[in-house]
């Protein structure tokens, strides 16, 4: 699947929160980058893990954006296009390096003990939960991960996820459902609450 040519920019979307290219050509590359870099890097990381790969991929996404800028249709939202490019770029990177699915981090168990003091513990507690979630994501299949990240982290609708992934809504739903169940299992295994 190759969906990254500029002529596919401007997929219709029902989501009004997705940013538009704005008033025309004066909307700059830099401002787009500022708006989107967090999301793009985040996506790349969930797909490719926390190594260099993710940042390389994010870089490639923005370079593609930079090159496509002249042909961008300013009247249509950029989001779907950018998500789609990101997903594609990540897939390419992933196939280049088979190992990207390696389960990286694990085992962050919550203590049954009362919270203890440490200047950084409070932050660490939350960080631990995030770590578990990140590790859980890495335990999914690539398609499950893409689907659940777009749906639950990035907040796209299942229809938009399907468009971004170039697949049917039914398939997306089954990815999402399986992903949620897996993550939930993972989470309850590693995040024990006080009994």
């Amino acid at each position: 699947m190759t969906g990254s040519t500029p002529d596919q920019v401007g997929m219709p979307s029902s989501d009004p929160s997705l940013p538009k290219l704005g008033d025309g050509p004066q909307e700059s590359f830099e401002s787009l980058m500022v708006q989107w870099q967090d999301r793009v890097i985040r996506l790349c990381r969930y797909f490719l893990g926390y190594g260099e790969d993710a940042l390389d991929a994010a870089q490639e996404v923005f370079i593609r954006l930079y090159r496509s800028l002249p042909s961008v249709d300013p009247g249509r939202p950029l989001g779907p296009w950018l998500y789609r490019v990101t997903v594609n770029v990540c897939r390419t990177h992933a196939s280049r390096r088979r190992r990207y699915l390696r389960l990286k981090s694990i085992l962050w168990l919550k203590s049954a003990d009362p919270p203890s003091w440490n200047p950084v513990e409070a932050a660490a507690e939350q960080a631990d939960e995030r770590k578990i979630m990140k590790a859980a994501l890495q335990a999914l299949t690539p398609n499950e991960r893409i689907a659940v990240v777009l749906r639950d982290i990035e907040g796209l609708s299942t229809a938009e996820v399907a468009q971004t992934m170039g697949t049917s809504e039914t398939t997306v739903r089954s990815h999402i459902s399986r992903a949620r169940v897996k993550i939930r299992e993972y989470r309850s295994r590693y995040l024990r609450r006080p009994s």
């Binding site: 967090d38 890097i41 969930y46 870089q59 923005f62 979630m133 982290i153």
Partner: peptide, 28 residues
């Protein structure tokens, strides 16, 4: 439980981006 899980997943939105990102990007 699944609802909690999805909520927990959402917290991943606050991930900061790496510090050297801009520098790297600039070089590219």
């Amino acid at each position: 439980d699944i609802q909690d899980t999805v909520r927990s997943l959402r917290s991943l939105r606050e991930e900061p981006i790496p510090e050297d990102w801009l520098q790297r990007f600039g070089q590219a």
